[in-house]
Nucleic acid binder design. Structure first.
Length: 180
DNA sequence: AAGACGATCCTG
DNA sequence: AGGATCGTCTTT
């Protein structure tokens, strides 16, 4: 039941992992020792260097470096001077794909969940399979999964802006803007 | 060295 | 509708 998700889960195509994460729980052990679990409600897939919306499409830089590691690695980045966004690397080493965690129960929105989880630079490169402060556990299987286009990537152009690579659980609060 | 901008959120 | 706020990348 409270079973940690292991490496194999993450070593698949990001388009399999992103919807499969819905309903699973992010488990966070905070610095004071308390442990909280949050059900994942919304995700987005970013699929390697060819995906113009994916940060890895800019190549290997200090920022994108961990995206090229094996699945199960955490990729966090700081944006708009305020928010740490949470991503899980997927696939084999070199695939450079990742899932953006866009919402979790009670905390819709990637910025808000990052704040709740008290993310910071130190999570860059964290391993979800071995970490003692953040990992993933099994959860409820979603009744229905919906999809839509990804948010905030207008610059990417076709087909990337139109690919329905955002996934969310039916009935859950989702990101602002029309859930086409 | 300087400028532009972003996988966001909050306020008015 | 617009401001906050700063790391990263691009351009000089």
């Amino acid at each position: 039941m409270n079973q940690r998700i292991l490496r194999d889960f993450f070593l698949r195509d990001v388009l399999e992992v992103a919807p499969a994460l819905l309903g699973k729980k992010i488990v966070r052990r905070f610095p004071d020792g308390t442990i909280k679990k949050y059900q994942i409600t919304e995700t987005e897939a970013y699929r390697g260097i060819e995906d113009r919306a994916c940060h890895a499409s800019k190549g290997r830089t200090p920022r994108t470096e961990v995206m090229f590691q094996q699945g199960g690695t955490v990729y966090v980045y700081f944006i708009y001077g305020q928010y740490w966004l949470l991503n899980f690397v997927t696939g084999e080493e070199g695939d450079a794909s990742a899932v953006l965690i866009r919402g979790m129960e009670g905390f819709p929105g990637p910025g808000r969940l990052g704040r709740e989880l008290q993310l910071d630079r130190s999570f860059y490169g964290e391993d979800l399979v071995t970490s003692g402060r953040m990992w993933i556990e099994e959860g409820e299987r979603p009744v229905q999964i919906q999809s839509g286009s990804r948010i905030g990537i207008h610059y990417a152009g076709e087909p990337w802006v139109s690919n329905r690579w955002r996934f969310f659980i039916n009935g859950q609060t989702v990101s602002a803007r029309t859930p086409d």
